[in-house]
């Protein structure tokens, strides 16, 4: 290998062999162990799960999911006919960052009830406000800290 220098001579360049982050598989393994599977939101393969409190609100849940996806958020909806407590427990076991619980009140007011792995119950928010919040968290690659005793909240 060579390049032509100012004098028209052939000169051998130097090389840096490097990686930015190394091997992806190994990095994934490392992150699993570091975070015990509770990844920062921007890395989560499922960032938000929408949980309708009964089948009556399945359509609204679907709409919420679709709006989240349009905004680039990795969202799913749990439309099984299980009790809401069961769905919340399972989402928590799956180490999901956010759960959006939706029922009659949420559908009427066009809001969502936010529960997070970080702070537990975060209260009702307009869907737009929630999207702004999570998109900022994802864009800045924020590593949100968990508040103590989250599960009691």
């Amino acid at each position: 290998m060579y390049y032509i220098d100012q004098n028209g001579d052939k000169v051998r360049p130097y090389i840096i062999h490097r990686t930015s982050m190394g091997c992806y598989e190994r990095t994934l393994a490392w992150l699993i162990e570091k975070y015990e599977g509770k990844f920062p939101t921007w890395l989560c393969p499922e960032q938000v799960r929408v949980l309708p409190i009964s089948e009556k609100y399945a359509d609204y849940a679907k709409q919420v999911e679709a709006t989240l996806k349009e905004n680039g958020i990795l969202a799913t909806v749990d439309n099984r006919s299980e009790k809401i407590g069961f769905k919340i427990r399972e989402a928590r076991l799956n180490k999901l960052p956010y759960m959006l619980v939706v029922g009659q009140k949420e559908e009427e007011d066009k809001v969502v009830s936010v529960r997070s792995r970080f702070a537990g119950d975060e209260g009702q928010k307009s869907l737009d406000a929630f999207i702004d919040q999570i998109c900022k968290e994802i864009r800045t690659k924020e590593i949100r800290k968990e508040v103590e005793n989250v599960n009691e909240k």
Binding site: V11, P13, Y14, I15, I16, T19, G22, E25, A29
Partner: peptide
């Protein structure tokens, strides 16, 4: 697991530089 494998993917790269650029690069 994922750490001792026979096939893996890395964020590989080579920088070809002039000697006077080496430290900065």
């Amino acid at each position: 697991g994922l750490t001792r494998v026979r096939q893996f993917t890395i964020s590989e790269g080579h920088l070809i530089v002039r000697p006077d650029q080496m430290v900065e690069e």
